[in-house]
Amino acid sequence: MQLNDTLMLDERCATVGHTDVYSILLIDDDIELTDLVSQFLTQNGYEVRVTNHGNNAINDIETSKPDLIILDLMLPGTDGLTICKAIRPNFAGPIIMLTALIDDIDEVTGLEVGADDYLCKPIKPRVLLAHIRAQLRRQSSLIEQQQTKIVSCKGDLQIDLPNRRVQYLSQDIDLSSAEFDLLVILASSPGEIFSRERLHKRIFKLDYDPLDRSIDLRVSRLRKKLGDDPKQPRLLTTVRNKGYLLAT
């Protein structure tokens, strides 16, 4: 698999809020692809580690503790979806999933098991770099802007920001990094309507595509984990043709 773009050194650009080198774990069985991507990302200031087999991935994640993971869907041994689902409870960083398959079901499934972003092969280096930077900026900027704790919904919802933990009705809620970040944005201004475009730009730092369903999928997963009835939600409300809001 070859990259669908000229492999050129992009301008080095430090991500806001992080003074050290970010570490990336690239998990893909295409050796030519991983060599090229690894070279490109290294030239752009990232520390890159590569794993070419699914069976080694979980152990490598636990050992290397990367800031971000690029994970192929189709791997020998353990597949990408299984890996993503297994690591998500203990890995708070962004996960960008790759696939050579053009299938909405794969994208939906990937997001549901905890992926933060999704890209189809062949990969354009500059596009991949933009997505990596957007995911790392999203995480860094949220941490910078966070207080110690957010208490909302008449005290029923409590968000421990430094430890990225959530309690609702005194029950611990296990959220992916994408779900947590979405909840923090909504809980920071309860009762305020956030459009899909506004949420997308806050989270991804990228232009909004009206056909992109990632925000809707995250809201759906968040409702399910919070036990909020999607037909008659009391906590996370959909405002028709406008967006979403969190109850006060």
Rank of each mutant, 00 (worst) to 15 (best):
L73P: 09
V127K: 15
T19Y: 10
D67N: 15
L73G: 01
D216L: 07
H53T: 03
L157T: 06
I193T: 15
I105L: 11
D209H: 06
K205S: 14
I123S: 04
L206T: 09
L129W: 05
D207G: 01
D103E: 11
L182N: 02
M74L: 10
V219N: 00
T248I: 11
S23K: 14
V219P: 04
I203V: 12
Q232A: 13
S188V: 00
H131L: 09
T34F: 06
E112W: 06
E62S: 14
L186F: 07
E197S: 06
A115G: 07
D79V: 07
L199E: 04
F194K: 08
Q135T: 01
L9N: 10
P66E: 11
E47G: 08
P190Q: 06
L81F: 15
E192A: 11
F180D: 01
Y168M: 05
K231L: 09
V48Q: 08
G191N: 12
R164E: 15
Y46K: 04
Q167R: 15
E107I: 15
L26K: 00
L235E: 05
I61Y: 10
N241R: 13
L26A: 10
L36H: 14
L41H: 09
Q145W: 07
D29L: 04
L136H: 05
D79M: 03
I150T: 00
G80N: 12
K121N: 07
R202Y: 07
K124P: 00
A57C: 09
L26W: 07
I83R: 10
A86K: 11
L75A: 00
L33M: 14
A100R: 03
R213A: 12
L169W: 05
I150N: 05
D67A: 05
K154T: 03
Y168T: 09
V239G: 02
R88S: 09
A57G: 07
V21C: 11
L183C: 06
I150W: 03
G77Y: 05
D5V: 04
K124M: 10
V21E: 12
H131G: 03
V37P: 01
I123N: 01
V219G: 00
Y46G: 00
V166G: 00
E197Q: 15
M8H: 12
D104I: 12
R240Y: 14
L217E: 03
A57I: 09
I132L: 12
G45Y: 10
S152H: 00
L246A: 02
K225S: 03
D104K: 12
P66V: 04
P210E: 06
R12P: 02
L3Y: 08
G155L: 05
S195G: 05
K124Q: 13
G54P: 03
R218F: 04
N52P: 04
L157D: 09
G17Y: 07
L136E: 02
C120R: 09
L9E: 11
V239M: 10
D216W: 05
L75P: 06
M1L: 13
Q43A: 08
K154R: 05
R165W: 00
A130H: 11
R165E: 12
D67P: 02
E112Y: 08
T148G: 13
D156E: 14
C153A: 13
H18R: 14
E11H: 13
Q158N: 11
D209A: 02
F204A: 04
L161C: 15
F204V: 00
P233H: 09
R126T: 11
T42D: 11
